[in-house]
Design a protein around this nucleic acid. Structure first.
Length: 278
DNA sequence: GACCAGGAACCGA
DNA sequence: TCGGTTCATGGT
């Protein structure tokens, strides 16, 4: 088990749009990553002790958010209410491969459907996890599926993906599976690269453009200086801050610096849960 | 039935 | 480089 006493609320963290495979159950959120199952309720992460290190990294449990918040609030008065509202957001260190596929699917799509496509993908092509019921963890019995490895997806044909109802994105999924399993895109190298180079590497995959690459780097590798700009964020920057699309990069860099990714998440979550005109 | 969704590929200038 | 079009699918 892990305790996250400060700056953490599972609702904020799991509902802010960075992840798609955490689902609310009657006693908290159940999630699967790296072939491991865990439950999160309030400030506690319920997992086998042998997985503590994995989830500590996943939740970035050693990161001190007070300094981040202080910096952002002092640079942007308007952002204060967003931080007050979603102060329990933690930017996760998700699995790179899963994040690549998730955000390829996110293109021109909506969150409920993204979740549905990913869930079907795991149920159809992932492995059933050998989960031993443990009453202490409070994880309900059930069938849990891992995220399918690149090699597994690469062994399929594009027709096999039709059951996902992912539309035109199925060919992008196949391209990612092929390039990653062949080593043309080496996922082991990318975390070691400088951000610009890492981004360039990800852009080799069809279906990965600038915004999707930013999401992958921010939500799986902690590149907190990135600020993914989707339709919502563009709308917010325009309507709340009066910033035109062309000026966004300089606006963001000047205002949020190396903490831009956090600002983006607080903003995104707040204005999606509340009316944009306030 | 049009419009939208955590966009990107593709094309022509 | 830049702006417009098209791309499946499901929900509203």
């Amino acid at each position: 088990m892990i305790y996250l006493k400060q700056d953490f609320d599972p609702i904020h963290t799991f509902e802010c749009g960075q992840c798609f495979r955490w689902n609310q159950s009657d006693n908290g959120y159940i999630g699967i990553c790296g072939g491991k199952v865990c439950r999160v309720s309030n400030d506690t992460i319920y997992c086998p002790d042998s997985d503590n290190e994995y989830w500590t990294n996943y939740f970035s449990a050693d990161t001190d958010y007070s300094e981040i918040k202080k910096y952002l609030e002092s640079h942007d008065e308007t952002l204060k209410k967003c931080i007050d509202f979603g102060g329990g957001i933690r930017i996760l260190h998700q699995d790179i491969w899963e994040t690549i596929i998730s955000f390829i699917i996110s293109a021109n799509n909506n969150i409920p459907r993204i979740k549905k496509i990913l869930e079907t993908m795991c149920r159809e092509f992932g492995d059933k996890i050998d989960f031993k019921y443990n009453s202490k963890l409070g994880i309900p019995e059930g069938e849990y599926y891992s995220f399918p490895e690149p090699e597994r997806l690469n062994s399929l044909s594009i027709e096999d993906l039709a059951c996902l109802r992912a539309g035109y994105r199925d060919k992008y999924i196949m391209d990612a599976a092929e390039k990653v399993s062949s080593g043309e895109v080496n996922l082991k190298d990318i975390p070691e690269m400088p951000t610009e180079l890492a981004k360039k590497e990800l852009l080799k995959i069809k279906g990965v453009g600038g915004k999707v690459a930013d999401c992958i780097l921010l939500f799986s590798m902690g590149r907190y200086e990135l600020f993914p700009k989707d339709v919502w964020i563009k709308r917010i920057l325009n309507q709340v801050y009066g910033v035109e699309e062309k000026e966004t990069d300089s606006f963001v860099t000047e205002k949020y610096g190396n903490y831009a990714g956090f600002a983006q998440q607080y903003m995104y979550y707040y204005y999606r849960e509340n009316d944009i005109e306030k």
